[in-house]
Amino acid sequence: MLTAAVFALQAALEPATPIDPPAPTSQVEILPLRTDPVVLDQLAGGPAKGAWGVSVQAGYPWFSLRALVGVGHRLAPLLEVESALGRRFSFSAGLSLAWVDRPHVRLSGEVLLGWMLQEAELSKRGPSGELRLRLAFPVRWAVPYLVLGTRHALLPSRTQIIREAGTETQWSVRHEWTPWGSVGLGIRISQRIGLDVAADYGWVDAPASVAIPGVHLAFHFGGGR
């Protein structure tokens, strides 16, 4: 009896003749999350999880290679190799973390540790470290940006005095400070390719020295976005 009633209700609800399914009045479309262009991630730091990028920079006097990969929470390990005119090199590894990530503003911080090596008349070598702030204002395909950094290197020096009685070795350590500033403009060519041009001022061995400002052009590419 109950079964018969259910079948009757089902028959009543069913249309008399079969028709095409109606067009949906609302639809939930699942799209991949919007990712940031590589030029923004490379210049402003803190890429999203899985996004990676590589920057190749050439200019006067600074050349560099920089790689970042996002691991989540806008945190990204990074590697950097930098050279000034092929005579001064630094090799660094570090972390980048974006603190502010809005549609038109990104602020990140970076900490790097590594080794500095200068092979010139004045040779220098020793452990180095840097703290860096990156600030960018992405607007459509343009990414104006600012980088401020403070670099430090410890330069050990060994003096050996060879006497008849034996060799005396003395160690001393000197601190080299390099405040850094860059201001430039990134250009998004596609999500995975970008360029930037900037003016750099690295005051190497401040405040005792004098430094000449530099400029660079960089190519950025990446994936995972």
Binding site: L85, R87, Q118, L122, D205, I212
Partner: peptide, 11 residues
Amino acid sequence: GSRFPFPLSLN
């Protein structure tokens, strides 16, 4: 050399 401005001091 140490008196030259960077990066001229590199060479």
